[in-house]
Amino acid sequence: MRRIYSIGGGKGGSGKSFIAASLGILLAKHGKRVVLVDLDLGASNLHTLLGQRIPEKGLDVYIDKRASSLEEVALSTTIPNLYLISSTKCSLEIANIFYAQKLKIINAIKNLPFDYILLDLGPGTNFNTLDFFLIAPEGLFVTTPEPTAIENTFIFMKSVYLRKLKLSLKEANMWHICQEEITKLSRGALKSPLDLISILVARDPEKGRIFEDLLSDLEFRLILNKFRGQVNENLGEQLVEVCNRHLYPSFDFLGNISYDNRVYESIIARNIFIAKYPYTKTVSDLQNMVRDLTGEKQEPVRVRAQR
């Protein structure tokens, strides 16, 4: 069965690309066929984390119609079973691709013939980033224990919900009903998407419920990266509880990933961290996540808000 995960989370430097690359490598070592898609258009660097130079082709070739399928531009890496679709050659303007092009890319990604498709997203909350994030029904949010990173992650999460709601409302020809409220919400301080749902339900109970279900289909997990000993060990669980209560009850905590200086050194030396330092806490944290994602670990008790 094909599984797609988006890896996002607002702030640049929180470790999204490092985690995407590392999870990809570990899944491939598990015998899965894995493709990493670099969707940080304009600032892609996933190849670097795989210890590679700038790839000769990628998403640009597919967009320019010089490849007949997206699979064709998935390059093999030094790791067996692991492939990379790079976007290094996508110029900065392409970060503002046309809507039709975007839809084409999105559809092609959804249909890539791999066991695992991991999408590495850029920072920020522009529409393309949000639309790419929403390709996957399952999203992984990466944050670090810093207040600014956490704040950006909350903002990113809220934006994902509002974007999903907006697209669905447009599709259902209901956008005009609450355009004003959504626009207000996306500008103001963090308010729950549940506020919008209750507006919709008040206007039209039946349809409102449909949107509530639609948002409930999304499944999100939180990763707390660059975790250090002095950080409150419950922080991850607490954040998830806050998301479930104040955003939407769709979050689980996937785990902490320990901070390790050698991650940085490895990137500089074009080494693959998890290959060079397999017996570190950081790698065992990542391995636990892979076990969780592949269902080898027993399902943890889900901590969710009451319905």
């Binding site: 207040p147 956490i150 704040e151 909350f154 963090l190 922080l235 806050v242």
Partner: peptide, 16 residues
């Protein structure tokens, strides 16, 4: 209380 108290990192930026 640990989640909502003033010093909590989990809700640091969340509320006025």
């Amino acid at each position: 209380l640990a989640i909502y108290e003033e010093s909590s990192l989990a809700t640091y930026s969340l509320f006025a």
